[in-house]
Computed example of a mutant assay.
Amino acid sequence: MTDISPSTPSRGWWRRNQQRFAPWLFLAPGIAMFLVYVIIPIFQSMSLSLYDWDGLGEKTYIGLDNYRELFDDEAFYTSLKNNVIWLVLYLLAIPAGLFVALFLNQNVTGIRLYKSLFFFPFVISQVVVGLVFSWFYDPSYGLLNIILQGFGLEPIPVLADERYATYGIIAAGLWPQTAYCMILYLTGLNAVDPEQIEAARLDGAKGWRMLWYVVLPQLRPATFIAMVVTIIGALRSFDLISIMTDGGPWGSTRVLAFYMYEQAFSEYGFRMGYGAAIAVVLFAIMMVYISAFLWKMYRDERGR
């Protein structure tokens, strides 16, 4: 006799649709956390940027006054200029990571030791990186100035000179960032099709031609991730600046993320609305760069 119980139709519907809905059930916790901790705070920051608020008292709606003040703020332009410098120079981590990965992808004596040495910066804290480079740059006993004195040159107080301080911090940041890009490219090189490599060799391709026309096109996914992560890392740089210079000398090494912290959370500020306005500008800049790169990747994929 046919089972016509009320539960039968629902069981039949789930059996027909479980392959479609099962992935969403697994993704649901992650999507919920992303909404709660990323998407909603973005809109809250946009809303907060329209208020004058010290974080404790009542909010006062002031419209776009925070943005008007921001674009007349000299410290904001200094921070924005430093972010551009960070962005341009930080991208050096991508080709550096690629060439290190190409070297480590070979079978040579001691390659495991080399991999460990190059991987080491990635696993240590940014705070430790900042301290190490602060000692390295020290004008009295730092290794850099010991080397300079060995060549008969005068010591350079890198972190105390506004001409060099930003570049010294960026150099410190490039050390672990290059290691991260190296890991991405090593993973990508393991997926390179050996048949295409062999076919290119038979056609006479080698060296730069092999890298440009055969290897790099297969490393596009790794390049995409490396580009996005490096751009985000450059635009949200904070910890190294806080550890190495605390924004000095005379505010010359501030970036937007650090200036936002100063205005919103430090004893000099407690201006939550103004800090939120800086965060919104930083988010907009980040989205412009990432969207442009995504659009380029999309066009490249369509053109293939």
Score class of each variant (00 low, 15 high):
Gly251Glu: 07
Ser252Lys: 02
Ser252Thr: 11
Thr253Phe: 06
Thr253Trp: 12
Arg254Gly: 00
Val255Gln: 14
Leu256Gln: 08
Phe258Ala: 02
Phe258Ile: 00
Phe258Trp: 08
Tyr259Trp: 04
Tyr259Arg: 03
Tyr259Lys: 04
Tyr259Gly: 00
Met260Gly: 00
Met260Arg: 10
Met260Glu: 13
Tyr261Ala: 00
Glu262Leu: 08
Glu262Asp: 08
Glu262Ile: 08
Ala264Met: 05
Phe265Glu: 10
Phe265Trp: 10
Ser266Tyr: 13
Ser266Ala: 12
Glu267Gly: 04
Tyr268Phe: 12
Tyr268Gln: 05
Tyr268Ala: 10
Gly269Ala: 01
Gly269Asn: 05
Phe270Ile: 01
Phe270Lys: 08
Arg271Met: 02
Met272Pro: 00
Gly273Cys: 06
Gly273Arg: 04
Gly273Asp: 10
Gly273Met: 03
Gly273Leu: 03
Tyr274Thr: 05
Tyr274Cys: 03
Gly275Ile: 09
Ala276Val: 06
Ala276Ser: 15
Ala276Pro: 05
Ala276Cys: 03
Ala277Val: 02
Ala277Glu: 06
Ile278Val: 05
Ile278Ser: 01
Ile278His: 12
Ala279Tyr: 07
Ala279Ser: 15
Val280Gly: 04
Val280Asn: 10
Val281Asp: 12
Val281Thr: 09
Leu282Gln: 14
Phe283Met: 09
Met286Gly: 12
Met286Pro: 00
Val288Tyr: 10
Tyr289Ser: 07
Tyr289Val: 06
Tyr289Asp: 01
Ile290Thr: 06
Ile290Arg: 06
Ser291Lys: 05
Ala292Pro: 07
Leu294Trp: 08
Trp295Lys: 11
Trp295Tyr: 15
Trp295Ile: 11
Lys296Val: 15
Lys296Tyr: 15
Lys296His: 14
Lys296Gln: 14
Tyr298Trp: 15
Arg299Tyr: 12
Arg299Met: 13
Arg299Leu: 15
Asp300Pro: 02
Asp300His: 11
Asp300Arg: 14
Glu301His: 13
Arg302Cys: 08
Gly303Tyr: 14
Gly303Trp: 15
Gly303Thr: 14
Arg304Gln: 14
Arg304Pro: 00
Arg304Trp: 13
